[in-house]
Design a binder for these strands. Structure first.
Lengths: 203, 203
DNA sequence: TGACTAAGTGTTCACACGACACTATTCTAG
DNA sequence: CTAGAATAGTGTCGTGTGAACACTTAGTCA
């Protein structure tokens, strides 16, 4: 019985939630897109395997990484009995990516416009998307998708991208400020029009 | 690399949340209590393995069963590299239990008075307890711990046992009735004092 | 300097939740 | 048969939270 990890790596591009897919070179599903991932080595923890695969296949380091669910149907991989532990991860759009990968083989796709996926990776993606949508309600998920300093409008774009629906600007700003999860800096971001105040996460 | 399942089986006894533990006969941790569980067979899904172990070790059938988390630290089992997929399950206190087990080897323990546990099973139990406490807030967890017909006082006892704190009777009854998750039957349970109306889950 | 663009800001209403105490019904024991 | 014990059952008010809703301000660029 072999064990793999698969990682749904999210980011925000052009105001939409994207995830990283890699084109498979080997059979099965050669030429098909799949999630980054691979086998757990004998002496590493499952969490460490996920972090290592993210580094090797996506070129990202020290990102937010959380275990999602384990998929263990006997027929899910035609090569034999392979159980996979799914993770999701998040990177800010600014982080340089795919450093260790041939650019032709890895690409970002919007979550609502995915190509056909190998194995049961579509189910994993849907599970991950549902999880972060729910987590948005009761945690601070979303910060991991932004740089250390960000404007409240940028934070709102993140929330809208994850939820897939527009939010009211005044209600959103009031909520995040009253919850005390952000704190203002004295800097402003001059990006085109009226400069926007930059914020940080509190803690 | 081998894969096991471990199941935290909850029930309510004497107004407190209990879980089932089995005394280990073999090394390692011989004589110590552990969660019911065992190896995933080559041709069964991980979910099916959890259901099978519940049947074999606890004698319970067709209970509510949900995957929790996968624990995969390399040193967690002294026998070698074993990854475990943890589940939790719930049975009403009325269901006959431990049918397939030597009664001397399986016993219910209150979650707040557990004996020393084998492996990392204490961490699994704590994870399961946290999960059901949280789920109580936004789902209908708790019904699985009751028979099909139950009084609102019985439902309140379940919630108090899971949360570990007393709840206000009027607020509790108002909430569950307004949420429309229970529907009244025309039967009453004559149990000692004033008879209590029986309810069912809606859907 | 006028037009465009994004930032920023308050009020009102409905609903959910928490705190809080008494009456009603049945059984049992004297 | 009557008193007491035990559990079932019930309503109000204050507070906080979330949703709906429109205009002003500051800066850029043509």
């Amino acid at each position: 019985m072999r064990v793999t990890v698969d990682i749904v790596l999210f980011t925000i591009r052009e105001r939409r939630l994207h995830l990283l897919l890699i084109r498979r070179l080997a059979e099965p599903f050669a030429g098909c897109f799949a999630l980054p991932g691979g086998f757990v080595l004998p002496d590493e923890s499952v969490d460490a395997a996920a972090a290592r695969e993210l580094r090797e296949e996506a070129g990202v380091e020290s990102v937010y990484l959380e275990q999602l669910y384990t998929f263990g149907e006997p027929g899910r991989d035609p090569r034999g009995r392979i159980i996979t532990v799914a993770y999701y991860a998040m990177v800010p759009q600014t982080q340089s990516l795919q450093a260790g990968t041939d650019a032709a083989d890895a690409a970002w796709f919007p979550v609502d416009a995915l190509p056909p996926l190998a194995f049961d990776h579509l189910a994993i993606v849907q599970y991950a998307h549902t999880r972060i949508r729910n987590k948005l309600g009761y945690t601070n998920v979303g910060f991991e998708l932004l740089p250390a300093k960000f404007t409240l409008s940028e934070l709102q774009v993140v929330h809208e991208a994850i939820l897939g629906e527009p939010l009211d600007k005044r209600n959103f700003r009031r909520r995040v400020q009253l919850q005390g999860i952000v704190k203002p800096t004295k800097e402003f971001q001059a990006t085109g029009r009226k400069p926007a105040q930059l914020f940080r996460f509190k803690d």
